[in-house]
Design a protein around this nucleic acid. Structure first.
Ligand code: FES
Ligand code: FES
Lengths: 161, 161
DNA sequence: TCTATTGCGGATATTTAGCATCCGAATTAT
DNA sequence: ATAATTCGGATGCTAAATATCCGCAATAGA
């Protein structure tokens, strides 16, 4: 079981967007350059975020991406769902209905105990991710990151806008 | 992100082993037949469980697999770890150390906030799986499954032993 | 209007991970 | 000893994720 690297990329991109002043758009190419990522593939992930309504896109000169909601309203789960899709990692294939001792469909109105346990575990996982918003990430970051470094980052961005 | 189907197979196989009387071994081929699964591939997963110490294997005639510990001491996480490996689904590639504004390694003594949040979520997921043992699964099953059906299953098994 | 910029979607190649199978080695009952 | 049984690692195959490119549509500014 492995999560796509695109999730890390998208999360960092969103964190950067959240740190930006209101109203400015950033192109996918610049977001990719910031972390030295393949521009074309980064663009794909940004499109996924836009389709999911996490960010809004504006075409044309001076366009780019920006957050669709306040940073406190965007959680890590929103990003995972946008990039990886909403399907659970564990997918019961109902093997109990196969084989010589197959359970009858009528006996399967309740989900299998094993499947239920896995779904509960994933619910806990999602809940943990939903509790973390971009705002809380930035708050943590501000506590541990020196103000000088933050200024350095913003300065570099301004030269590219 | 997708979990291997082998996890479901292994979980059901272990549940079956747990339901069996003490001291009997079941071959991988029979475990596969029980749920209509590819025998050779099922065997591979059983080997993974054996390597991880979840089950013990005995070769030769009359051999087969059996649980290495009491059913109450085997959790779903043990099975996932054996089949999928212990690595976390989210793997931080430290992209913050890449690009024109790369963070210096000295600034990365603490893990990235994003990585920390994902690791916390996975810890919650694993914790939920560790709370479910084979014994608790069988107990739930016994509550919802008719005694007649349970007898039917054991009867079929005896014909194959 | 014309041009430069930027996002969008589809088509495509490449790489990786999962799926499935086979045959040899080890062990046990006869 | 011998044959039957079963595990174990090595090997090919298939599907999916990864990564890239290019044409099209839309927008802003000259
Ligand atoms: S039948 Fe799918 S988990 Fe039990
Ligand atoms: S650098 Fe990997 S999650 Fe932030």
């Amino acid at each position: 079981m492995r999560m796509s690297d695109g999730v890390e990329w998208a999360a960092h991109a969103c964190a950067l967007l959240a740190a930006l002043p209101e109203g400015v758009g950033v192109s996918a190419a610049l977001l990719a350059e910031f972390n030295d990522l393949p521009p074309a593939y980064m663009a794909k992930h940004m499109q996924a975020l836009a389709r999911a309504g996490v960010v809004t896109s504006a075409r044309g000169a001076g366009g780019g991406y920006r957050l669709a909601r306040p940073a406190s309203e965007v959680t890590l789960w929103d990003i995972v769902e946008a990039v990886e899709g909403p399907e659970p990692a564990f997918r019961c294939t109902e093997i109990r209905q196969k084989g010589p001792c197959a359970a009858k469909p009528a006996e399967c109105r309740h989900p299998c105990q094993i499947a239920a346990a896995f779904h509960a575990a994933e619910k806990a996982w999602r809940g943990s991710l939903k509790a973390v918003s971009l705002a809380s990430i930035l708050a943590d970051l501000a506590r541990k990151q020196s103000p000088a470094r933050r200024a350095e980052l913003l300065a570099w961005l301004e030269t590219k806008l």
